[in-house]
Design a protein around this nucleic acid. Structure first.
Length: 290
DNA sequence: TTCCTGCTAG
DNA sequence: CTAGCGGGAA
C-alpha cells in the first residue's frame, strides 16, 4: 500500500494524522452518525446520493419514523414509500430502497448483508453506498469515493492537475483508509474526509471540478425529468387512479401557465411508459393507479 | 447560478 | 462511457 503513495508527497503517516485532526475540527454532528443500525445508515446513504446534507435531515427522521426497520419497509406499500420521499428528489432511489428491503425480507435472513459484495448486489447500492455502509455501520475500512472524498484528495494530492480519474484516486484512498491510524476508526476517518471536503467546497473553488467524473447537470426547468416528477405526484395524489387523458391535460395546462411548450400525447405516453416500467405506478386500461 | 456523501440502463 | 434522473439550499 505504502509503495503506491506518490513520490515527493507528504508522507502517508503525516497525511492521515493531519486529516484526522482537520476532520475532527470540522466535524458535523449529523443525526445518522455514530449509529449501529445498518438499515438506518443505508437509508441515510441512499438519501444523500447527489443530495445535500441540509436537505436530508428531516427526511431521514420522518422516513425512519414511518419505516423504522427493514421489515417495516418491506411490509409497506410502494405509494406510501414514494409519498415519504416526495420533496427529496430522485424518486428512483425510493423504489430501489424498497426493492432492497423486499429482497432482504424474502431471502430468509431478514436483514441486510454485512459484506461489501453482498450490499453491492442490491438495488440502488453502488460502490460508494456499499463502502459507506461498511464503514459507518460496521466500522470496516474500504474504498469510499464520493464527491467530498474526491475534493479532499484532489485538493491535497493533485492541486494543479485536471481531469483526474477515480482510477487515479482509488489506490490513494485505499492506502489512506487501510493505514492503521485510519483503519482503527473507519467512521471517524470518513466522517472527517466528508466534512473536510464539504468545507473546501464551501470556502473556495470546488476541487471536484478537476475530477474526470465531474459534469454539470442539464437544466431542470421544462425538462422531461420535471414532468416525470409532476406525473408521479399527480398519480400519488389520486389513490383511486387518474385517467391518462386528464393527467395529460393537467400537465399541459401547468406547462402553459409556466410559459413552456405544451405536452402532446406522444410525450406524455412516453413518460408514463417509463414510469410504469420502472414501477412507480400501474396502468389499468386508461387509468393510472398508484 | 451551482451542485449535492451516485446509480443504472443503454 | 454517457445520458438521465429531483429539487432546493446557499
Amino acid at each position: 500500500m505504502g509503495a503506491l503513495w506518490p513520490e515527493g508527497a507528504e508522507p502517508l503517516d503525516e497525511f492521515v494524522s493531519r486529516l484526522l485532526r482537520v476532520g475532527h475540527e470540522l466535524y458535523r454532528d449529523l443525526p445518522w452518525r455514530y449509529i449501529d443500525d445498518p438499515y438506518a445508515v443505508l437509508v441515510s446513504e441512499i438519501m444523500l446520493q447527489q443530495t445535500q446534507v441540509t436537505r436530508v435531515g428531516r427526511f431521514w427522521e420522518r422516513f425512519l419514523e414511518a419505516f423504522p426497520t427493514l421489515d417495516a419497509l418491506a411490509a409497506a406499500a410502494v405509494p406510501d414509500v414514494l409519498e415519504r420521499w416526495q420533496g427529496l428528489g430522485y424518486n428512483r432511489r425510493a423504489l430501489a430502497l424498497k426493492r432492497t428491503a423486499d429482497q432482504c425480507a424474502a431471502d430468509g435472513r431478514g436483514r441486510l448483508p454485512d459484506s461489501y459484495e453482498g450490499l453491492l448486489a442490491l438495488p440502488g447500492i453502488g460502490p460508494a453506498t456499499a463502502a459507506g455502509v461498511m464503514a459507518f455501520a460496521h466500522q470496516v475500512p474500504g474504498v469510499y469515493v464520493e464527491t467530498n472524498v474526491r475534493a479532499v484528495f484532489l485538493h491535497e494530492l493533485f492541486p494543479h492537475e485536471d481531469k483526474v480519474s477515480d482510477k487515479m484516486l482509488e489506490p490513494l484512498v485505499a492506502a489512506a483508509a487501510f493505514h492503521p491510524a485510519a483503519a482503527a476508526d473507519p467512521r471517524r476517518w470518513y466522517y472527517g474526509l466528508l466534512d473536510y471536503g464539504a468545507h473546501l467546497k464551501a470556502t473556495g473553488v470546488n476541487p471536484t471540478r478537476r475530477s474526470a467524473s465531474y459534469s454539470r447537470q442539464s437544466v431542470f426547468e421544462g425538462s422531461r425529468r420535471q414532468k416525470r416528477a409532476w406525473i408521479v405526484r399527480r398519480v400519488l395524489a389520486a389513490p383511486e387512479g387518474v385517467a391518462g387523458a386528464a393527467g395529460r391535460a393537467d400537465l399541459d395546462r401547468a406547462e402553459a401557465e409556466a410559459a413552456r411548450d405544451g405536452v402532446d400525447e406522444a410525450l406524455f405516453a412516453s413518460i408514463v411508459d417509463d414510469l410504469v416500467t420502472e414501477g412507480f405506478f400501474r396502468r389499468e386500461g386508461a387509468l393510472l393507479i398508484p
